Simulated scan of single mutants.
Amino acid sequence: MTPLTGKTVFITGSSRGIGREIALICAEQGANVVIAAKSDQPHPKLPGTIHSVAQEVEDAGGKALAIKLDVRDEDAVQRAMQDAAEKFIGIDVLVNNASAISLSRLQDTDIKRFDLIHSINVRGTLVCSKAAIPYLKKSQNGHIITLSPPINLSSHWLKPYIPYTLTKYGMTLLTLGLAEELRGDGISATTLWPQTTIATAAIEFALDKDLLKRSRTPRIMAEAALEIIKSENLQLSGQTLIDESLLRDRGISDFEQFKFDPHAQDLMRDLFLDA
């Protein structure tokens, strides 16, 4: 048996990028994986749908359930959790990966745009977490993992893109609160954030295509997420974890394997992290 045999991992935003990679590494460990995302039809520019990832999960040795899901829809989220729990006899891990990015000053941000990123990042994370809790309480090692950064109150991070920062810090604050609210239920709640930028479609299209060469692959985040999932007895609960630091603590020292460009020398540190 592999470490996650029989465990069910519910991952939002998992049709591509980091969410997809976490789905695949969990499948390699024998998990049941719920691929919950909006992308159920091929996109002209972005590869991957919930169905293509479900097939990859099956090919990697896991069991898959593909669910078209908008995390802003509370009723749909509750139905998705119920469907997942009925198919796989429970839910053991929720990965709050779905997120929207918008790097603009408050003065340059349309309020409708802020409402969108807030509804996905903060409200979506809250809705999914609340819906998952009844099932996680029945797990022997329940986890909520949220992909958000440590709360860095340095002025140079507070200044440049207030709307996005508010939502990402909101996700972290929510998770830290859940760690305490759920401690008596034996459910771990942690955040996970990359040391460097990660080579995903968000980097390529929303930021700067040249950043891909200075980024790491999503696999490093998946490896770190796996370490969190395997942790027991609330060992990491309430922590804001960085992928590289966590993996170093687990004895991994070869980070060259995670470079998107093997020849890159100057990797880009991710947002909200200081040297």
Rank of each mutant, 00 (worst) to 15 (best):
R105V: 15
H143Q: 03
L69C: 03
S102W: 14
G30P: 00
R72Y: 00
D249N: 13
N141C: 14
I145G: 00
P42C: 03
L158M: 02
S215A: 06
Q235H: 12
L173A: 12
I18S: 01
P262W: 09
A206G: 15
I18C: 02
D243N: 00
S15A: 04
T5Y: 13
Q265S: 07
A275H: 14
T167M: 04
S99I: 12
F205N: 15
S104D: 15
T12K: 03
Q265N: 06
G17H: 01
A54Q: 07
S237E: 00
A275C: 10
K112H: 14
Q140S: 15
I187T: 01
A225E: 08
R20Y: 01
L226Y: 02
A23T: 06
G142C: 00
R123P: 07
S155P: 15
I11D: 05
I120Q: 06
A27W: 09
F10A: 10
Q107T: 15
L173N: 04
I145M: 10
E227R: 10
H143A: 02
L246A: 04
Y169G: 01
L271G: 12
T196Y: 11
S148N: 06
I228W: 02
H118E: 15
A80K: 02
R113Y: 13
K68A: 07
G6T: 04
D108A: 05
L116H: 15
E181F: 05
L136R: 01
A60E: 08
A36E: 03
I67E: 10
G48A: 04
E28R: 15
D110A: 11
R216D: 07
S237T: 11
